[in-house]
């Protein structure tokens, strides 16, 4: 299935709170345990971009406006 949406993260603004991960209806967001950003947190990322539907629930819950959402 082709992706219907795309999420872009400003990774260095992320504080790693995980609210986007819990808000995603498709459970495709994860915390990147391999990376440490400028602030010293593990930032969120989209583990399976092909499944994104562009619902913007993650962006709705992000307290730090890290996420930009596009829809095809």
């Amino acid at each position: 299935m082709a992706a219907k949406g795309k999420v872009t993260f400003s990774r260095d603004l992320c504080k790693g709170c995980g609210l986007c991960v819990s808000a995603c209806p498709l459970k495709i967001l994860e915390m990147d345990r391999e990376t440490i950003n400028e602030k010293g947190y593990n930032p969120a990322y989209c583990a399976d971009p092909q499944k994104c539907i562009g619902c913007a629930n993650c962006a709705m819950m992000c307290p730090d406006q890290v996420i930009t959402v596009e829809r095809f």
């Binding site: 603004l13 504080k15 709170c17 995980g18 609210l19 947190y41 992000c62 307290p63």
Partner: peptide, 13 residues
């Protein structure tokens, strides 16, 4: 700018 709020604080929202 980045806020000073703790991670997950809903003040940001």
């Amino acid at each position: 700018v980045s806020t000073h709020y703790c991670p997950g604080c809903t003040h940001g929202i």
